[in-house]
């Protein structure tokens, strides 16, 4: 009994924290998304109120959600966000997998230092690091200077203020989130499995495809989700590196909240993003965890 109670106590603070600062705000946003906009402060009408006769009156306004489907802007912002986040995730995977593999197979004495290098960018502010990319990507920036000097191009490229710049910025920013879970799965892999594959006549590259890659799928999925989910809603990177026509849902949200001061529509955009993206991903993740627990439960005992 005390053990159970102790576990409950230990679990309480994080859950209380999440309930207070995630669940409650989420419910507030949900509430706002269903209310009518108004010119006052706050810029929306209450969802329910007591009229003079003492009756409870509701003012639902589902039109905010209807608007999301009515206006192309929102749909194309969603799709473009998914596209950019998807490409960035693939780029992170392409760069992060070899890096994680190399670290996991490096001599034990080196691994900690190499991992530290992966995490090193976190020691500088995210904002400053994204700003630094402006200096690299702009027309008269370092990247163009190097490419011109090397003779690869004859005229500076317009990279900044394009989707490409956003993808580069996201890939750079989220790469550690890909490398760390991949490293964790690759590092704990039993290397005698590769010896067994070789013993059974499998060449090293084929053994990678047949054994290492499938066994690292949990890391691939975890890393991809860690990159993809925040990338979809990313605001700072498209705002700083993207152009005026870089349409992403984070920017639309910002515009609705602060430029249009249409809180109900902005809230509806936020809720729709959550439902469309995060909910299916969470369901998949949950199913995977359960399957893994089942598998481990059988071997463990």
């Amino acid at each position: 009994m005390t053990g159970r109670f102790g576990r409950f106590l230990v679990g309480l603070p994080p859950y209380a924290w999440l309930a207070l600062f995630f669940l409650v705000p989420f419910l507030i946003v949900l509430k706002i998304s269903l209310s009518e906009p108004s010119a006052g402060a706050p810029p929306y009408l209450p969802l329910w109120e007591w009229d003079e006769a003492g009756n409870l009156a509701f003012h639902f306004n589902p039109a905010n959600y209807g608007m999301l489907f009515g206006d192309d802007l929102y749909l194309s912002a969603y799709l473009n966000s998914i596209r950019i986040a998807g490409i960035s995730t693939l780029a992170c995977l392409a760069l992060g997998y070899p890096a994680a593999y190399a670290i996991a197979r490096a001599p034990l004495a080196w691994r900690q230092s190499l991992l530290l290098l992966v995490a090193l960018p976190f020691w500088t502010s995210f904002l400053i690091r994204v700003y630094a990319w402006i200096g690299i990507l702009k027309t008269e920036g370092m990247l163009n200077a190097v490419l011109l000097w090397a003779g690869v191009i004859s005229e500076p490229l317009q990279i900044l203020q394009t989707d490409l710049a956003v993808i580069i910025g996201m890939t750079y920013s989220y790469l550690p989130f890909m490398v760390l879970p991949l490293y964790a799965t690759l590092e704990k892999m039993d290397l005698t499995l590769l010896e067994a594959a070789a013993d059974l006549g499998c060449r090293p590259f084929k053994a990678f495809l047949a054994v290492t890659l499938p066994l690292s799928m949990p890391g691939v999925i975890a890393g991809s989700l860690l990159v993809f989910i925040p990338a979809v809603g990313e605001y700072v990177i498209p705002d700083l590196l993207g152009g005026p026509d870089t349409l992403m849902i984070g920017k639309v949200l910002w515009a609705e909240f602060f430029d249009n001061r249409d809180w109900p529509v902005a809230s509806a955009v936020a809720i729709a993003m959550l439902v469309l993206l995060v909910a299916p991903i969470m369901i998949i993740q949950n199913a995977r965890t359960k399957a893994e627990e089942k598998a481990e439960g059988r071997t463990g005992r």
């Binding site: 039993d190 005698t192 067994a196 070789a198 013993d199 499998c202």
Partner: peptide, 20 residues
């Protein structure tokens, strides 16, 4: 000769069965 070209097969102490 590399292991994948030898006419020998090994039964590993840990069995090294492919878990997937």
């Amino acid at each position: 000769v590399p292991p994948y070209e030898r006419p020998v097969n090994m039964m590993f102490q840990s069995y090294a069965l492919f878990p997937h």
